[in-house]
Design a binder for these strands. Structure first.
Length: 785
RNA sequence: AGGCACGUAGCUCAGCGGGAGAGCACUUCCCUGACACGGAAGGGGUCGGCGGUUCAAUCCCGCCCGUGCCUACCA
């Protein structure tokens, strides 16, 4: 069969992927033998499209999954997508806005329908993009976090946690996004340093007319909700004032001066205004001292009726007016530059407002302790190891999780309230009547769950939990999780907690944390910077194999991946190199395809046995590197063996031996085809398409004994000891290589210095008297001629 | 404020106790029947700085400088 001069990646990609699917190579069967190896994919959001982060994540998973499958493991890789509550809702709302509509005009049902349509389009798009990368997932087991089955798991978990008293509803201070108009968890708030912030000093007059107490604040607009002024009990400046009242400027309410040891005397004036309804610290002080909690803003962060004359103003305008009015009243002292942190919504960047609100919470303390223990005793291991510190750090300081969201897209909370007696029933299906008063007017909670609540169940909900399925029994706990560090808290931690709580086992044995992909300048890719590279374009230009190989090569543990066109070019050249090695090999085999019979090691030349020895070495190194998730090491070794050993040396050395009539031909043919076969299998996890394409061509030449059905499930190579070289042989080969290089070196020197003797060229380069070296060089010179 | 990671050739990065490496870029030569997405030969580095441990340090320890990231209720 004739091979074209260059490898046509696109045609191969389509042909082979389809064939793999058609033949069911990726479909897992729990009833087949083999130790289980399972991975659940981190489900991509249905909002977006494939970016390089996904490409890296999926490539690494595919490499290990393909290798395990070839090693004979009973392999399952579950694919799927995440409904991504707030992110998707925002995306669809933006889409609606283009038509001049908003969700409230549509109503909840119509809006939800619209999001389902969106999910249909974009969810499928991203899954196709994963397939384009060659992801060998079991596509027949595709899941979606809002599927019926997964929703059942969500309800089950909710109800069990509620019954255990871990889920509760409470009116507390929470993070609120005034644009998304929903509660957020602590994790969904980004903290940004504000360098040009201001600290304002304001005088609060004492009610008894004995003067003022001065407070410093960064948020004067919240003073309308002040219910105390606090000082440190040790602070002598204020000791006499504790217990007195002050009159809140502008609105005249009387509030007490209290003592609380949390107040830092060294900051500002040492006296702090206390606004329990708009500041987390103040909320704590307020609860300690039983202060009133006065909320002065509405859900869009506009001043509400409690703000008196400022009602209706937004936060910024209210601040300006208040500062002006304080100046007019002579109660404004001064301002200072002050650097502080402000919290913003991680989804829309709006400044988050601490708000007093009734929300659902999950007490995670005990679950967190179990998760910590599981990592401490090694039931689950992080790679690289240092991420464990990050995990512990957060888990040890974990707070209750505010998981209810005032959104429309997500799992609606399975709780019903009787409209007559206000009784609350937590149950998966709507009860016929109130269990207290028998009233029939029951209303389901409007809120939905934080999207991470359902993805936190992903490793077992996708396998059928709570039903005791065969998949669960066979494939859970999963073997490995491959994900980014940015969702260790959001996702990994929650899966650990839920997994241990509901299955009694860790959800995965190993966690491999992938590096972050950056652009050629080392900048983090983001849409706003406009430096996002589309992996699809890269696959079009360089081929999927080249993209995959490049990503694997750069995937160094604990280091960011910086992708450059140079690297991609090199990988594409590598694919081509392998392709051309195949062309050479094919040209040296018998015309009629027939299996090349196995040749005993004793019949082989030194070069034959050397390359098989090197192959053994490569197999060992590549296998252990992937076992350790050192993808870069494995990829480099594949590259080095194929290019610098097989092509540079073995093919060159075998050219003569493969000629017709040469006594070494039979052995040479066997070794080159056998070596090639093994080499392709090593390459396959990294570059599935070229390897499969070539393999399909050389397959007829491979001896029956070595044949396996097809590459995706062909056996991964194992070292063969009969090919090992002894010390003297290895030395002889090394000397041959070194001598060849020396001769080439000399040849080049002679060409650069025409007319000069070899001695004249060598002597000055060696230094000393150089006699012995020069003699050697002279010999080489003769050898050359 | 604390924590983590990283500083090795022009660029992007491997290596991590005893020979300084790869890819790309650069210089010279070669379209030799697998491959110019190729081949051959080269130039280029006080392995961030300063101390310490060691017979021996790019690699271990300490401090410093620089870069990036994460966590944190200082108004």
């Amino acid at each position: 069969m004739e091979l074209s001069k260059t490898f046509d990646s696109k045609a191969a990609e389509q042909r082979w992927f389809q064939l793999w699917i058609d033949r069911g190579y990726f479909t897992a069967d729990p009833d087949q033998p083999g130790e289980a190896f399972s991975i659940v994919i981190p489900p991509p959001n249905v909002t977006g499209q494939l970016h390089l982060g996904h490409a890296l994540n999926v490539t690494l998973q595919d490499i290990i999954v393909r290798m395990r499958r070839m090693q004979g493991y009973n392999t399952l890789w579950v694919p799927g997508t995440d409904h991504a509550g707030i992110a998707t809702q925002n995306a669809v709302e933006r889409d609606l806005a283009k038509e001049g509509k908003n969700r409230h005009q549509l109503g909840r049902d119509k809006f939800e329908q619209r999001v389902w349509e969106w999910r249909e389009t974009y969810g499928n798009r991203i899954l196709n993009q994963l397939r384009r990368l060659g992801a060998s997932c079991d596509w027949s087991r595709e899941r979606f976090t809002l599927d019926e089955g997964l929703s059942r798991a969500v309800n089950e978990v909710f109800i069990r946690l509620y019954k255990q008293g871990l889920i509760y509803k409470d009116r507390k201070l929470i993070n609120w996004c005034p644009r998304c108009e929903t509660a957020l968890s602590d994790l969904e708030v980004d903290h940004k340093e504000q360098r040009n912030g201001t600290l304002w000093y304001i005088k609060y007059p004492l009610v008894d007319g004995s003067g003022y107490i001065e407070v410093a604040t960064t948020r004067p607009e919240t003073m309308l909700g002040d219910t105390a002024v606090a000082v440190n009990p040790e602070d002598n400046r204020y000791r006499a004032m504790v217990g007195k009242n002050v009159r809140l400027p502008l609105i005249g309410r009387e509030i007490p001066i209290i003592a609380d040891s949390e107040v830092d005397s060294a900051f500002g004036t040492g006296a702090v205004k206390v606004t329990p309804a708009h500041d987390f610290n103040d909320f704590e002080i307020g609860r300690r001292h039983h202060l009133e909690e006065i909320s002065v803003m509405d859900t869009r962060a506009r001043m509400n009726e409690n703000a008196g004359p400022y009602a209706g103003l937004d936060r910024e305008s209210a601040r300006k007016r208040i500062l002006n009015d304080l100046k007019s009243a002579g109660l404004y002292e001064k301002e200072e530059k002050h650097t502080n942190n402000i919290g913003t919504c991680s989804r829309c960047d709006t400044i988050v407002e601490p708000m007093l609100s009734e929300q659902w919470f999950l007490n995670v303390k005990q679950m967190a302790e179990k998760a910590i223990a599981a990592v401490r005793d090694g039931r689950t291991k992080f790679f690289p190891r240092f991420w464990e510190n990050t995990f512990f750090n957060w888990m040890e300081n974990i707070h209750d999780w505010c998981f209810s969201r005032q959104l429309w897209w997500g799992h609606r909370i399975p709780a019903y309230r009787c409209q007559r007696c206000d009784h609350l029933m937590v149950t998966a299906v709507r009860p016929p009547k109130c269990e207290e008063c028998e009233g029939t007017d029951l209303k389901q909670e409007d809120d939905v769950l934080d999207t991470w609540f359902s993805s936190g169940l992903w490793p077992f909900s996708t396998l059928g939990w709570p039903a005791p399925t065969r998949d669960l029994e066979r494939y859970y706990p999963t073997s490995l999780l491959v994900t980014g560090f940015d969702i260790i808290f959001f996702w990994v931690a929650r899966m650990m907690m839920f997994g241990l709580e509901f299955t009694g086992e860790v959800p995965f044995r190993d966690i491999y944390i992938t590096p972050l992909v950056r652009d050629a300048e080392g900048k983090k890719m983001s849409k706003s910077k406009g430096n996002v590279v589309d992996p699809l374009e890269l696959m079009d230009t360089y081929g999927t194999d080249a993209l995959r190989f490049t990503l694997a090569q750069l995937a160094v543990q604990g280091r960011d991946v910086i992708l450059s066109p140079d690297r991609l070019n090199a990988s594409r050249a590598f694919a081509n190199k392998v392709w051309n090695a195949a062309r050479f090999t094919m040209g040296n085999l018998a015309d009629a395809p027939q299996p090349i019979p196995k040749v005993d090691a004793s019949q082989m030349s030194l070069a034959d046995r050397w390359i098989l020895d090197r192959l053994n070495d490569a197999i060992r190194e590549i296998t252990t590197a992937i076992d350790r998730y050192e993808f870069n090491v494995a990829a480099m070794k594949v590259y080095d063996f194929i290019w610098h050993e097989f092509c540079d040396w073995y093919i060159e050395l075998s050219k003569d031996a493969l000629k017709a009539g040469d006594p070494r031909q039979a052995a040479g043919r066997y070794v080159i085809i056998h070596g090639f076969d093994q080499m392709l299998r090593l390459l396959h996890p990294f570059m599935p398409f070229v390897s499969e394409e070539i393999w399909s061509v050389i397959r007829p030449y491979i001896d029956e004994a070595d044949l396996a059905p097809n590459l995706p499930i062909a056996k991964f190579p194992a070292p063969r000891e009969e090919h090992a070289l002894n010390h003297a042989e290895a030395l002889a080969m090394r000397h041959l290589i070194e001598a060849t290089e020396a001769v080439n070196s000399l040849r080049a020197l002679v060409e650069i210095h025409p007319g000069k003797s070899v001695n004249a060229i060598i002597r000055p380069r060696i230094g000393g008297n150089g006699d012995s070296h020069a003699g050697f060089a002279t010999d080489l010179g003769r050898f050359r001629n």
